[in-house]
């Protein structure tokens, strides 16, 4: 019933997330500072170094943390309003970076418990929904196992399963692929790609290959502010003509590392006798980070 409402309520033309001047501080430390962000439905990657404020931003979007200042609108609703916040939560799936599980729960029982909290109350529908999400994350055969006995990757997938309950309009996932093997990552990408057609999926990750494989849009967060927002292609384009393969590491390069072929990948100015190569999303991200660092040092 709720799932139907969520599906019917999805609006693929309006922004799913709108943040205007959002800030959040923790005991004097600024986690988010004047964040402006507009996210349209689809799959969006959130990149940024450790401590950039990704998790804080995701917690605000998951409505489990209030912003100190600015305006937040999620799925056209204001989470500052108690009623609208509950409405958002009916349309939301959230996977935090670190998810603890209650003692003594089996996989099925935990996901079923979360389904009840998500107001999927009709028992038959709930059972079907729980089985479906466990199937999606390939945990059907582990349903009766105690979560304590599962491997790290399997526990992560239990977290993903609960986030997928009710086919949410907005999926907020904090490092969802952590601990997953390559096959599981590919399987998860398929599930998320499917979800991205009908809803908004925001994925915070350090895995640029996941973002490159999945996302059309990318947001880069640095020191609590948005340093880039646009398509993945646009970010990669910014690195065009700035990625070189050379036999030595160039000291002028913003970033330089030795590749498996023994040659050095230099990002930035052209070194002597270097070969220009096509940039990847990782190259573009590193160049953007380098530029932001330089600006910060200059400032």
């Amino acid at each position: 019933m709720v799932t139907d409402a969520i599906r019917k309520g999805a609006n693929m033309t309006a922004p799913a997330i709108e943040l205007r001047g959002v800030s959040r501080r923790f005991r004097g430390a600024t986690a988010l500072d004047d964040v402006q962000l507009e996210v349209m439905p689809g799959i969006v990657g959130l990149l940024g170094p450790n401590g950039a404020g990704k998790t804080t931003l995701l917690r605000i979007l998951a409505t489990v943390l209030g912003a100190d200042g600015g305006s937040v609108r999620i799925l056209g609703r204001d989470p500052a309003d108690a009623v609208e916040r509950t409405e958002i939560r009916r349309r939301l799936g959230y996977l935090p970076q670190e998810l603890q599980y209650p003692r003594g729960f089996t996989t099925y029982r935990f996901v079923d418990y979360m389904a009840v909290l998500k107001e999927i109350e009709e028992p038959a529908a709930r059972r079907a929904e729980v089985r479906r999400v466990l199937e999606d994350v390939d945990l059907r055969d582990r349903a009766a196992k105690s979560i304590r006995t599962l491997s790290g990757g399997q526990r992560r997938r239990v977290g993903l399963a609960q986030a997928l309950l009710g086919s949410p309009e907005l999926l907020v996932l904090d490092e969802p692929t952590t601990g997953l093997d390559p096959e599981q990552r590919v399987a998860l990408r398929t599930v998320l790609a499917e979800r991205g057609r009908a809803s908004t999926v925001l994925i915070a990750t350090h895995q640029t290959e996941d973002v490159a494989a999945l996302c059309e849009h990318v947001v880069v967060l640095d020191r609590g502010s948005v340093s880039f927002q646009g398509t993945v292609a646009a970010l990669v384009r910014e690195a065009q003509g700035r990625v070189w393969l050379a036999d030595t590491a160039d000291p002028r390069a913003q970033v330089s590392w030795r590749t498996a072929t023994g040659r050095y990948r230099n990002l930035g100015e052209a070194p002597a006798e270097a070969e220009l190569v096509e940039p990847t999303l990782e190259d573009a991200y590193l160049l953007l980070r380098g530029a932001t660092e330089s600006e910060a040092v200059a400032a």
């Binding site: 998951a62 409505t63 489990v64 509950t86 409405e87 939560r89 009916r90 939301l92 959230y94 996977l95 935090p96 998810l99 603890q100 599980y101 209650p102 003692r103 935990f110 979360m114 009840v116 909290l117 998500k118 107001e119 977290g159 609960q162 986030a163 907020v172």
Partner: peptide, 18 residues
């Protein structure tokens, strides 16, 4: 005690109700 309160808080069943 709610070990998974982080995700439970993000559901329509709010903390006060639980």
């Amino acid at each position: 005690d709610e070990a998974s309160a982080e995700v439970e808080d993000a559901t329509p069943t709010g903390r006060r109700a639980r």
